[in-house]
Design a protein around this nucleic acid. Structure first.
Lengths: 112, 112
DNA sequence: GTGCTTAAGTGCTGTTTCGGAACTTAGTGG
DNA sequence: CCACTAAGTTCCGAAACAGCACTTAAGCAC
């Protein structure tokens, strides 16, 4: 089965994963909850490549989870903020955080 | 940044995603919560390729989320059950399910 | 005892996605 | 004129994935 076919699966977990079930998307959302909103901030925080970041931001906007806003007309600059739909992922974020804190302790320090 | 470097990230969400942040792993876990436990059951339910399924099961066992048990010696047959660590993902599963039910309605039927 | 079936994988091949780095565009400041 | 910033885009090689066939070991049917 192709990943793209999952968005109409009978299972709501599968449908959710059709939006967030990849390696980077939830990390962008985490950064949004931490207050970040700009392309360069996401790129610096998560360490993902700019190519993938641009793609994921586009998908999240299409999914209605983030909204793209202009914060400067000249030059054209945009930032990304959580919609209400996105805000409602907060409980999911917290359960994932709690599970990680309990079951996946840090073994060694990393830069960021 | 490579995906594999995420397991020691400072952020517990990132560490959690180092285990589950791919396209299929959480779907296997969903099936476990639904009571499935065998290779062929997972393969049939999720529609993922057998190759990837075998890899993900191995990783989940290494991560301590699933336990591989023999249920038949001749022929050798195994099933996979949630450990306590895995059971504790239930709240995360439910928040993802609830978000999907609320924000991602089904548009057309699919054959599972 | 040859052939059919089941469970749990492995191997092979071609396609898709990803990682890393450089490049682009439009405007700002010196 | 030259460097710099933000938000991307382009290019290429590497890694992951999809689809299908094949394997192994036992059970059953004839």
């Amino acid at each position: 089965m192709k990943w793209s076919e999952l968005s109409d699966n009978w299972c709501p977990v599968a449908r959710t994963l059709s939006v967030f079930g990849d390696r980077w998307t939830l990390l962008i959302l985490r950064d949004c909850f931490l207050g970040l909103s700009r392309f360069e901030q996401f790129a610096g925080s998560s360490g993902m490549t700019r190519h993938i970041l641009a793609d994921r931001l586009k998908r999240l906007v299409e999914a209605g989870v983030l909204a793209k806003q202009s914060y400067s007309d000249a030059p054209k600059r945009y930032d990304y903020v959580l919609t209400e739909k996105g805000q409602e992922l907060a409980p999911a974020m917290m359960t994932l955080r709690d599970w990680g804190k309990k079951h996946l302790p840090v073994r060694r320090a990393t830069a960021n």
